[in-house]
């Protein structure tokens, strides 16, 4: 694999490898000297057609900690909606010798186009496209879950764990990537949302669906190990997805009472940015079982792992197995 466009690009072994490498990356980030020389001389472009300071900073930190040169290209502006800008921008980046392009775009599939239309040779990392996917977010969520829910995490997946993903699934790239990745890692996913905020066709997803948050939290789909709240935009109210913010919050918001329904070990997650008081109350967000701040920290380690696996080797994301005892012996064998 040359790109990371969808969580579905990863099989179980690859996904576990990313998490394992991220674990080692996280270890380096607890040291005094956090910078590694690994990607020295390589160029990573953050191509953001949509504002997302948190995601951009996370990728920027990841690339810089690996010593890559980072170019931030914020293409948000008057001409974004027109297609040429993606192609022409890609051609510009190609001319500048980008080894990897981290792309955030409001149109679903834009990273896919970038990777496959022949506009650039660099590795493309999807940093969130429209209402499609956000695979590195799913990886950092899985990483966070594995740390909290699995002992001897290295090499392990999330087999048998139960995760509820609650909120605006219809418009959520985070939900799509999480359903795919968690399923790959062996976890059971329950989507909880009002029917208006679930896509037609969700029946085909590898997960269960619930309209009743209280029942799900209380164990209707088994004891939950993690509850992930999705951001809900108040503007959806105007398009009649739900009658009012108050009603949404009452039926699908996570508050202290609902947290009380959960088993003791269950973690509460949110990809951010949160709407406190809408999908999650302050006491739920700030409770000891909340991993929301930790998710941000883990984001850097996971993105370091992705950049490392895509850029460090001669080929692709597939690991070459355990490190060879001596490397020089294969020199000259590879092109």
């Amino acid at each position: 694999m040359r790109h990371l466009l969808s969580a579905a690009d990863l099989d179980r072994a690859q996904a576990v490898t990313v998490l394992d490498v991220a674990e080692q990356m996280a270890a380096t980030q607890r040291r005094e000297i956090k910078k590694l020389p690994t990607l020295r001389g390589r160029t990573v472009v953050n191509l953001f057609f949509e504002d997302s300071t948190r995601t951009r900073i996370s990728f920027e930190a990841a690339a810089k900690r690996l010593s890559a040169d980072v170019i931030n290209f914020s293409a948000k502006g008057s001409s974004v909606s027109k297609g040429e800008s993606l192609k022409d921008t890609a051609l510009t980046l190609e001319a500048m010798g980008a080894d990897a392009v981290v792309v955030r775009h409001p149109a679903s599939g834009a990273p896919h186009r970038l990777a496959h239309a022949g506009w650039t040779r660099g590795a493309v990392v999807n940093a969130g496209d429209g209402t499609h996917e956000h695979p590195t977010q799913a990886l950092l969520d899985a990483f966070t879950m594995r740390r909290h829910l699995v002992e001897n995490a290295t090499g392990a997946d999330l087999a048998g764990r139960r995760v509820a993903v609650v909120g605006d699934v219809l418009h959520s790239r985070v939900a799509r990537s999480n359903v795919l990745l968690l399923n790959t890692l062996g976890a059971h996913v329950v989507l909880v949302a009002p029917p208006t905020l679930l896509p037609v066709g969700v029946e085909g997803w590898p997960c269960e669906v619930s309209y009743d948050l209280d029942a799900t939290l209380a164990g209707a789909h088994g004891d939950l190990d993690a509850v992930m709240m999705l951001r809900v935009q108040a503007e959806r109210m105007n398009a009649s997805y739900f009658p009012s913010v108050r009603e949404y919050s009452r039926r699908y918001g996570l508050d202290a009472r609902r947290v009380g329904l959960l088993p003791d070990h269950t973690v509460v997650m949110h990809p951010g940015p949160m709407n406190r008081g809408l999908e999650i109350s302050a006491d739920a967000a700030d409770s000891p079982r909340s991993t929301i701040v930790e998710q941000v920290t883990n984001g850097v380690a996971v993105r370091m792992a992705v950049l490392y696996l895509l850029l460090a080797g001669a080929r692709d994301l597939a690991p070459a197995g355990p490190p060879a005892d001596e490397v020089a012996l294969t020199e000259g064998v590879l092109p």
Binding site: Q24, A27, L36, Y308, A312, P319, P322, V327, A328
Partner: peptide, 21 residues
């Protein structure tokens, strides 16, 4: 001590996993 991320020949090899330090 895993030295993988300090190697000067990473790009000549398939990508390697990283062992704990």
């Amino acid at each position: 001590l895993d030295a993988t991320m300090y190697r000067d020949d990473l790009r000549r090899q398939p990508v390697r996993t990283i062992a704990p330090t």
